[in-house]
Amino acid sequence: MSDPRYQIDVSVVTRYLKEQSDPDSQRFAFAYTITVQNNGSVAARLISRHWLITNGDGEVEEVRGAGVVGQQPLLAPGQSHTYSSGSVIATRVGTMQGSYQMLAEDGSQFDAPIAPFRLAVPGALH
């Protein structure tokens, strides 16, 4: 939705979790911290999420669920919500992307896109 009243911006910081990974078993664990910022003029609740997690072999896992880490935060204009979660993939490099499904206080439903971001073991990319 291009209506400026419904402007949700998403930023992501990722981290490789060496202590939870086992490269010999093709298990690579990553944490990500996401900040969801309401830059629109209408309060909106994050009601669900949709992720596409792609590993370095091109295999895609689709994840859908209510809220984020058990919460459905209501974001007033100018407000943000930050949370951390994680993902495990079978390769040293992968990507995640998706969207949050939002419900505005005025009853409008819209998607907040999450641009692709990289999951990578340090040194895996040159």
Rank of each mutant, 00 (worst) to 15 (best):
E19Q: 14
L74M: 07
A76N: 12
Q20F: 13
L125K: 14
I114S: 03
Q7I: 02
Y100K: 01
S25I: 10
L103E: 12
R92N: 09
N55G: 05
V36W: 01
G67P: 00
S21R: 05
M1I: 11
V12Q: 02
D106A: 13
A44I: 03
V13F: 01
D24G: 06
G58I: 04
M1D: 10
A115M: 09
P116R: 05
A120H: 00
Q72G: 06
P73R: 05
S84D: 15
V42A: 04
P77V: 13
R27W: 11
D24Q: 10
M102P: 06
A43G: 08
D9S: 08
M102C: 11
G58D: 11
G123Y: 10
A76E: 14
G65H: 07
R27S: 14
F117P: 01
R5M: 05
Q20H: 12
Y32P: 02
E105V: 11
T33Q: 12
R92I: 09
K18F: 12
R49W: 01
V13R: 05
S87A: 15
D22T: 15
R45F: 09
A104T: 11
K18Q: 14
H81G: 07
L74H: 02
H81A: 12
G58E: 11
T14E: 02
A112R: 01
S11P: 00
